[in-house]
Computed example of a mutant assay.
Amino acid sequence: MNSRKEQLEAIDRLLTIMDELREQCPWDKKQTMQSLRHLTIEETYELGDAILDNDLNEVKLELGDVLLHIMFYAKIGSETNDFDIADVANAICDKLVNRHPHIYGDVKVIDAEDVKRNWEQIKLKEGKKSVLEGVPRSLPALVKANRIQDKVSGVGFDWEEPQQVFEKVKEELEELQDEVKAGNKEKIEAEFGDVLFSMINYARFLGVNPENALERTNKKFIKRFQYLETKAQEIGKVMNDMSLEEMDVYWNEAKTKE
């Protein structure tokens, strides 16, 4: 692994390249924070894919893309004299020191849950009016639900046992079925949302990240379905003309190859 000196030299090299690109490249020169925003989100998702695939070389490359975006925003900030990369780094350093009094102060903690509770309480002392202020509005709904539940748990608003949460899941499913029978579309949607929210909460109690779990299932489904498509082509059939029984044969065959 690289020494601290080599790591700092690499960061300095990237800063220099960023300066040069901003001065000389027509594309880089015209970028703004607003124009970069959607690209940053895309790069973050690509990093997430690499992590799910456990492709460490790809993780390294995608981290580079994300780091470039951080440098880019800091460079733009420096051009308006609002902030530069040192301000960005110092801001997070100050935040980490302040929010880890068990390391940089005299607070005692027993485990990670203590740390999380302290973290949320410190944020409130910093001026936040709600523990939910830190949940981005633009997060996908599933991820947002998970973050909401995690944050309120940090201030003690939570169930005590996984079984309690599972009972809540069953209760919400029953309420959904009642509305399905009644046929009220608006209430069905509301109850369906409650079911999803309770399932996400249950996942948290089981130590499962619901976003990762669902994405793994997405990938598994895609792989199996594409196997089915390939087999249909091999036997010269269009999938619309295949029976469910025929499809099921190849679907099960795909499962055995995982």
Rank of each mutant, 00 (worst) to 15 (best):
G207P: 05
L142H: 03
I122P: 02
I103L: 11
Q24R: 10
F225D: 02
K187V: 04
G77M: 09
L61H: 12
K95P: 00
Q34K: 15
L132H: 06
M247Q: 11
D106N: 15
D82V: 09
M1N: 13
N240Y: 09
N2D: 13
E161L: 10
R204M: 08
L56G: 07
E189M: 11
W27I: 09
K95R: 12
R224T: 07
Y202S: 08
I70F: 03
E253T: 09
V88T: 07
K108Y: 09
K237L: 14
Q164W: 10
P140Q: 13
V195N: 00
E179I: 03
S138G: 04
V165D: 01
E133I: 06
E253Y: 14
I200E: 12
H100K: 13
K29R: 15
L124H: 08
P101K: 02
L61V: 10
Y45C: 07
K168S: 04
C93F: 15
D111I: 11
D94M: 07
S153Y: 08
V155C: 08
D87F: 02
G105F: 07
E245T: 12
K185R: 11
I103N: 04
Q121I: 13
F72C: 10
D12R: 14
M1Q: 12
A89E: 06
T230C: 04
M242V: 01
G236F: 04
I235A: 07
N57I: 14
L244P: 00
W159I: 01
Y104D: 02
E258F: 08
D158S: 13
V107E: 03
K185W: 09
T16A: 06
D248E: 14
E245K: 14
Q233S: 11
V131S: 07
D178P: 00
S243Q: 07
E215W: 11
S78W: 05
T256A: 10
T32S: 15
A182P: 01
K181G: 02
A190C: 08
V180G: 03
E215G: 00
L67Q: 10
L132P: 11
N201H: 14
V165W: 03
K123Q: 10
N146S: 05
D28V: 12
V165L: 03
V115P: 02
I222F: 08
D150E: 11
K128I: 06
L36P: 03
Q34D: 14
D49M: 04
P26Y: 06
A89I: 12
K144M: 01
Q121W: 14
I103P: 00
P136V: 15
Q7P: 00
L15G: 01
I235V: 15
S35L: 10
E42H: 13
F197Y: 13
E246I: 10
R204N: 11
C93W: 15
L142E: 04
D241W: 10
L52A: 12
